[in-house]
Each structure stands twice: as C-alpha cells, then as structure tokens.
Amino acid sequence: MKAWTWLAPRLMSGLVLAAPVFAADLPTAERARELQNLLIQDCGSCHGLKMRGGLGPGLLPEQLSSRSPEYLTTIILYGKPGSAMPAWRGLLTPSEARWIAQRLLEGPDS
C-alpha cells in the first residue's frame, strides 16, 4: 500500500518513464514493500540506513548524479569484483534491481 502511495504520483507525473521499466515489470505492492525493506535494511548494512556510506560508498542522489540507472542496475545484479559489493542476481530479478536503482536515484526521502 505504502509503495503505491509514492509510486502512483510518479507514474502519473511520468518520472518513472525516464527509465524503461514497463508497468508489467513493476513489483507488486507486497514485493515493493519487501524491496524497500531490503534497500534500507540490507543495502543499509554496508551503505548506511540513510545511504550516507559505511564499508560501501554513500548512495545519496547527489553522489550518484553521474550514474545512469543502467549502470546501477548492472552493479546491483553483478556486483563489483575486488570490492565487498556482491552480485544480487541470485535474489533479485533485473527489473527488481532496476526498481532499486531508480529508488536510489530519487533519494531515500522521495
């Protein structure tokens, strides 16, 4: 429910259209809640619950301004060799990774 309260206005304002995520690929409301929790709590273990960084770099929108959603999606899915960033493709589908990338670019308070 909560996910839709922020997703719906963005869908209408066309913000989400900036990324080629099709409606059919969007997670269900329940899955969106799980992904949101994973983003804050599990990504947050290394990047900080407020995405200000930790063992991993900060992921606030201003720190990601030069990164495309495609780049972030790839890093999420395949990890970053030589660093502690794992490949999440065993737990996330490409469209779910894309959803998280988009969420990061919009900022934790959006």
């Binding site: 273990s45 063992l55 990890g79 794992p86 737990l91």
Partner: peptide
C-alpha cells in the same frame, strides 16, 4: 576454499 567458487557475500 581456494579454487572453489565463492558465493556472493550479502552480509559481512
């Protein structure tokens, strides 16, 4: 564990 594929480490 040398030579074996390590699993992705989702948490230290």
């Amino acid at each position: 564990g040398r030579g074996e594929q390590k699993l992705p480490v989702y948490k230290m």
